[in-house]
Design a protein around this nucleic acid. Sequence first.
DNA 1: TGACATAATATGTCTATACATAATAGCGTA
DNA 2: TACGCTATTATGTATAGACATATTATGTCA
Lengths: 231, 231
Amino acid sequence: MTTARSSYRAIRDEISRRIASRVWLPGALIPGEEALSVEFGAARATVNRALRELAEAGLIERRRKAGTRVALHPVREARFVIPLVRQEIEARGAAYQYRLLSSETIKAPALIRARLGLAAEAQLRHVRALHLADRQPYQFEDRYIVLETVPAAKNADFTAIGPNEWLVESAPFTHAEFTFHADSASAESELLNVEKGAPVFVGERITWLGERPITLVRMIHPSTYRMVTKL
Amino acid sequence: MTTARSSYRAIRDEISRRIASRVWLPGALIPGEEALSVEFGAARATVNRALRELAEAGLIERRRKAGTRVALHPVREARFVIPLVRQEIEARGAAYQYRLLSSETIKAPALIRARLGLAAEAQLRHVRALHLADRQPYQFEDRYIVLETVPAAKNADFTAIGPNEWLVESAPFTHAEFTFHADSASAESELLNVEKGAPVFVGERITWLGERPITLVRMIHPSTYRMVTKL
DNA sequence: TGACATAATATGTCTATACATAATAGCGTA
DNA sequence: TACGCTATTATGTATAGACATATTATGTCA
């Protein structure tokens, strides 16, 4: 027994159950908050919280005046966590190793400029590094840091601590965009210890602080990599 | 001006700003709800909602008695929506086409049985289909449906409506597991109109209704595919 | 010193009430 | 009929007050 008082969790789960068991069919209008609060013997605020969470999960759709209905095509969202590579590797019980491959300050190439919306003269720090799990190549990191947004990155030392961990500590972001796709290994094939042309899993991430771009990174994994998330 | 009364959004955004601008550093303890409610001139419940959302986003960490602190390694979560292939394609302004390739009822192969935790005699419906965008192959769908859990799938007609849309309407799920990886095209290479051995992006999804598995599906895209999500 | 009970405290949740806001429905008028 | 105003309604948000719960800090006793 959780509590004598009706909890928003109990209400949420019961409503979720009714939808799953098709008591309330997709597209159907469900009772209003007032009615539910009577049925469950709870305050409307409590029912509201339950419904709000279900709406966030995409199970129901709510509109003022129109009421709440079971989502027709539950556009559900999966969440996946964005851990540091090191944490990701250590969580698997593997030994983490980091190797800095190259680091230089350059003028932004046109392609990167376009992606980040930078001026022609923008300066970038370009870092290439390798992350290993149990001595096996795990991820090749190819990163550009916008020095205008993060001046401290100009002289940061990435030989011991990777730019990923350094940025997390030193340059918080407000927005991010993630892209994932499959590609065939080219220049990085030797580094990842795979055949040239072998499939690789590529994650790309751009982060911003407000309107200003912080960094663009390509993270390339061999095809043994699995990105997993549960719902 | 949003409202004269302080809103939880305003509070949430202000706290978010303080973290982003490093007024409150990673690991630092931030004022308690009581103190913040005084500062912002709001009720504690309002501050609570603001903080709760930030905690959900992974920006702060909260513990009873210990208080609230700025996350050291913001284990932030990205969310990505799981739309129907049709919606995904139509959202790009492309014409959607669906083609059923094969459909049969079989005894579960050992590999699938293991993944879904099924008994040896379990019956499955195995469906293979192709989804096209502007007449170009977009996704090859290779699906197994557990007939024990979804008996109605035994006689369902998947020639016009794909099993994906059919299941969404007919068999809601409670849990799901998603896996993504890169692979090289083998049997499906012709269907996707790519070279044999070309890189493909593979998404795998298993859904459950309570404890019982509903379906396992492999969704295979050519390497031009991009999975995008924003935060 | 160490184990254990106890007090203190910040967050977690619930209630009752009130007002805000979006969106629909219905009415009246041109 | 077409348009626009207005009343209605369900959700959205805020408040004050209360109790619940997890966890830390403290104190007591062996």
